[in-house]
């Protein structure tokens, strides 16, 4: 038996929004640690990994590890039936083929129960080693979204150059070139507005904007985004979900022909 309850459906709705354009089917792995999901996009270029920790839930019961194979479109459609303020309960039997989604209004006057058919999915899991990165940039997530969107008007790729104290995002295309420089904040009152740049060694890598724009669908989950970059390894774009977990995206750099 698996059953968990979140005080607000909003966070799970936003999590589904962050995933649905990138992956069509996925497996939620349920264990005593919480819910987790890892999936490559259909072209196997990028990877998304989600962790929702037990401590962030109102209640969490998992008698036995289970894998819930879901169609992301379907789950997102059902999640949209919840109001943001509703509390949400997810429930599934150990060998069941259904996931129950129960939405309860804050005043307790309305309870909606949906049952979603689960899928038997065999999804390849990749082993992601823990590693140190050459550079870690933290910046307002809305700013990063804006940069990716704006540079998409110029080219298909963004070149990210990190040096001490700042980052250059640049793009080249048939119509012209663009360069956006973001400087590390010197003094910020609100942590969400801060830009921090940690540099162990400067890096200069190129990434496909198409995927970065998919990743920025997670923007409503967190005021800040972190970009972890090292030469010749995938970029990690991470959004922390307060008190609950994270959504992390991995994207291989483009390599010069």
């Amino acid at each position: 038996m698996f059953e968990c309850r979140l005080p607000k459906a909003e966070v799970l709705k936003k999590t589904m929004d962050a995933l649905k354009d990138l992956i069509k089917e996925a497996v939620w792995d349920v264990s005593a640690q919480g819910l987790s999901l890892q999936s490559m996009d259909s072209s196997h270029v990028s990877l998304v990994q989600v962790t929702l920790r037990t401590e962030g839930f109102d209640t969490f019961r998992c008698d036995k590890n289970i894998a819930l194979g879901v169609n992301m479109d379907t789950m997102q459609k059902l999640m949209k039936c919840a109001s943001n303020d509703d509390n949400i309960t997810l429930k599934s039997e150990d060998n069941g083929d259904l996931l129950s989604l129960i939405f309860e209004s804050p005043n307790g006057e309305k309870t909606s129960e949906y049952e979603m058919k689960l899928m038997d999915l065999d999804i390849e899991q990749l082993g992601i080693p823990d590693q140190e990165y050459s550079c870690t940039i933290k910046m307002p997530s809305g700013e990063f979204q804006r940069i990716c969107r704006d540079l998409s008007n110029i080219g298909e790729s963004v070149n990210i150059t990190v040096v001490k104290g700042g980052v250059d995002f640049s793009a080249k295309g048939d119509i012209g070139n663009a360069k956006i420089h973001v400087t590390e904040s010197s003094n910020v009152d609100n942590e969400k507005d801060a830009v921090t740049v940690e540099v162990n060694e400067p890096v200069n890598l190129t990434f496909a904007l198409r995927y970065l724009n998919f990743f920025t669908k997670a923007t409503p989950l967190s005021g800040q985004v972190s970009l972890s970059i090292s030469p010749d390894v995938p970029l990690v774009v991470a959004y922390e979900i307060e008190d609950l977990g994270h959504v992390k995206y991995f994207l291989a750099p483009k390599i010069e022909n």
């Binding site: 490559m40 899991q125 990749l126 082993g127 496909a208 390599i255 022909n257």
Partner: peptide
């Protein structure tokens, strides 16, 4: 020109 490499190249399939 630049090439987009897949994520599998970097991480092992478990």
């Amino acid at each position: 020109d630049s090439w987009q490499v897949g994520i599998i190249i970097y991480y092992l399939i478990l």
